[in-house]
Design a protein around this nucleic acid. Structure first.
Lengths: 206, 206, 206, 206
DNA sequence: AATGAATGAGCATTCATTCAT
DNA sequence: GATGAATGAATGCTCATTCAT
């Protein structure tokens, strides 16, 4: 009974969470009302408040959940690789996985929502993003160590270039609704472009 | 008399316009109420409605105004140049000018607002953005003709890389509040990076 | 010039008047805004206020104008007749003329608007209606004198019956949109019914 | 618990309903604001919206409620009688009961509000009124069968005459605020007038 | 004779949220 | 674990009206 009850409860909570994510992703935080979320789930408003303190909490929990996805993805697609180029490739395919598996949650991660939200939400997102940037910086240093990046390279620019393109791809998918944005062909094209323009071929060394 | 009246009227209208732009830029369209705008300007609500049909019209007019800025900037910073590299440099400095002169309006141009707005607004912005992408494509072709870009280059990737970086700079300024994002030093750094990684040195021709 | 100006002025005033009458008749006093009237006429709001003190004045003037119609009609269709039955017939055809010539103004005369308006308006209408009822009473007395009505007839009931039917006809036309309500055939039918049921044949006298 | 809650809820809902009816009856639909209704009841605006979707719904529910009254009255005062004259008398006393028991709701039934309302409301009222007219027609046919009405009588005119008088009485009460309009003496007077002028004495019976 | 610009007061409606149950 | 009933505050928007010109 406890289990059942727990399961049911967890289910309700999760249904609210998912519905809210989808609605927020489609219409933006401000344009979605508690009522709409509840209608989508089929519960009454006090039920939502039973699980989530208030509307802002909902979005904060979403950001944290998203952050877990990001970390898992990073672990599975980037950290487990040793070769720098494989990490870079993992970056692309990890984003693809994220964007296709959790499309609603992706939007909260995407920097794009930093505009037009509460200061609290903004702060939370920045807090979560900065370490990611640092980690990415570390990867680039590894790239240098592995000889894929020249020692005198401007790493900051390199980072900006790569992240800018990643975000560009996301925009093509979500804003311009270009379905092929994350197709394997396109990702390969991006990878080729990067390899050709941004990275060295370390084999020469040997 | 006519002049005075016109001037006064134009002034009121413009003050509403500017105040709305600033508020929208800071808090987002949904979180700014008509009342707030009016209080910021010091007029009553019907006055705002005298000049603007409704709230959505306000934002649509802002988008169009922004579009004019974009076009003017492009003319002054890019189109008037002949050398491809100068055009690219103009792209950077034009963006700097835009971002620093009309910071509020920049946000409407930035893709960032494409999320979480009315479908009407979204449609309007996409309509305005697509030709800009085309024009930029044409510039890259010129770059090829001038020998700055290899004939077999993947122009689409090149475009995405450059625009992604531009948007990244804007994000650094507006989201991370990094004032130096558009400093001359930084722009030069970006330019150097591009020149080194993305463009050829056409002197070989001669 | 004075004449011209006067004429033009009178014209504007009249156009406002007519447009307001039509709109009021169609949608009711409360649901028609000054703006709507002005848009229908093609003038600005202060112009309306130049001719009419306020919205209530507009409707009061309409009531008075309507009253003039009523009086003219009564003169032309009833008073000029000497035979009682001709007066009654005139009542029917006068109403027909009114209803078809000034359909918009008829509605203000019709008691129907006594509901749901300002107390001032209500009072004005009652003031204007009471004498009409008196006059009609006098006609019935004439009918008695001419032998069309029995000396012991309940004149009040008679009046109520006739007026009730007249109003019923108007309702059929305006509420149920029954075009034939005031057709000559129908009026004749009403007249026949009255003659048969309500009035005597005075010829017996002679 | 359920009962208590239900009772309380039903009470609030009903208080809103009654207050709205009274206000609408006195001032007309357009001139009564949601706020006024709420103040009269002593609840906040969202409470009203909890029970009624919007203002138009309020009036539509009122019309339907009124229609139920009408049907009950008809059943109790007219349908249960067998003699035609008793039905006619029931018509008068049923109207009296209605007008005196539910004065506010009477006004919605009275045709008078057909003017100057939403098309939706108008349509609803017409839909509800037409069958009533038909039923009344059937009663007149029964009158014919019982010998109170000549076989060649113009039944339509007869109906119009009777209904016109009924409406006239209502007008005297509500517009001219003549309290005696529905006094027993007056109703008897009406009945006598009808009997004398409109109906036969079905000698066959005796 | 006519208007452009402005307003104070009010509208219907919706918001996020709470409390007793 | 869930809800029916209620609310204070705010929303976008419109009203009749005025004043200087």
């Amino acid at each position: 009974m406890n289990n059942l009850s727990n399961a049911k409860s967890e289910d309700t909570r999760n249904r609210i969470f998912q519905a809210a994510a989808e609605l927020f992703a489609n219409y933006g935080f401000e344009r979605v009302s508690i009522r709409q979320i509840c209608e989508a789930v089929g519960v009454q408003k006090p039920t939502l408040y039973y699980y989530f303190k208030d509307k802002e909490t909902l979005i904060l929990e979403m950001i944290r959940f998203t952050q877990q996805i990001v970390q898992t993805v990073r672990k599975d697609y980037v950290d487990c690789k040793t070769d720098f180029l494989e990490k870079i490739r993992g970056l692309l395919y990890g984003r693809k996985y994220f964007v296709e598996t959790y499309p609603h949650f992706f939007r909260f991660y995407a920097m794009l929502h930093l505009f037009s939200t509460t200061e609290k939400v903004r702060a939370e997102m920045i807090t979560l993003m900065l370490p990611l940037l640092d980690e990415f910086g570390a990867i680039l240093v590894q790239g240098q160590e592995q000889g894929y990046i020249a020692p005198d390279e401007d790493l900051e620019m390199l980072m900006q270039t790569i992240l800018g393109t990643l975000n560009g791809l996301s925009m093509r998918k979500f804003v311009f609704q270009e379905e092929a944005a994350f197709s394997d062909e396109n990702l390969q094209r991006v990878f080729d472009f990067w390899q050709k323009h941004l990275f060295l071929n370390p084999k020469k060394r040997g």
